[in-house]
Design a protein around this nucleic acid. Structure first.
Lengths: 115, 115
DNA sequence: ATCTTATATCGCAAATATACGATTAATGTT
DNA sequence: AACATTAATCGTATATTTGCGATATAAGAT
């Protein structure tokens, strides 16, 4: 009978370069159809809609709320309470900062030379 | 004593529009620093490197292999065996197709009008 | 004050992702 | 044939994500 030393599933994300982490975090937030759809919905409506999103998406209120939270925590959207309702809108500052960075990432990657 | 009917965590991703799913799938693949770093490494080296990636990344061989598999299955990279070694490179077709789509997504979202 | 409405959060189940050691498979080398 | 090297895969532990019902909270309406 012998012991097995057990490794643990430590999160190693934070040992990558800051800029790499930033891109990955953005991508992660975009990495679910519901969240893409939420961003599109927020952009389409002129005003910042709230629970209307729940009606648009084929998901429960609880689940939509969760996705909104994820988007908010990642910085893609902002949210504020307006009476009973809760009003979300795109975080333009963040998105306008990150969009070119992501684009630059692809540009850098797609320079001829590879393969 | 009464039963609780238990809902199951069905994956609802596939009921979103095709184009939304496509973007989300791309983003999901990019949603980890290791995978961003792998793509950058593949782009930097002229030739398609293989196990060199393992040396660059602060992760075990098994883990890197797993990330490579994820990138391959998502279509971002291609891989082929070359003797003992295994050689990966960017899937330029896919990336050159998706980069503008992602860019367009941001453009659509960032049209003035919201909030 | 009670009732309704809107949304966040809790608690749970299930699925997926992350990480690695150990092993396997397949090729190259001696 | 035996050994070394490379990389995929298996098995496992743990963490995170996805999803929803139920509940809590807080504001508005009656």
């Amino acid at each position: 009978m012998r012991y097995k030393i057990k490794y643990m599933a430590i999160n190693k994300s934070n040992i990558f370069p800051e800029e790499v982490q930033e891109l990955a975090a953005l991508a992660k937030a975009l990495g679910h159809p519901a969240r893409i759809a939420i961003l599109q919905a927020l952009a389409q409506k002129q005003s910042c809609i709230c629970g209307e999103i729940v009606e648009i998406l084929p998901l429960s209120q609880a689940t939509v709320s969760q996705h909104l939270k994820a988007l908010k925590e990642a910085g893609l959207i902002k949210g504020e309470v307006e009476g009973v309702k809760s009003c979300y809108c795109l975080n333009l500052e963040y998105l306008e900062k990150m969009s070119p960075l992501l684009n630059q990432f692809f540009k850098n990657i797609l320079t001829p030379g590879c393969c």
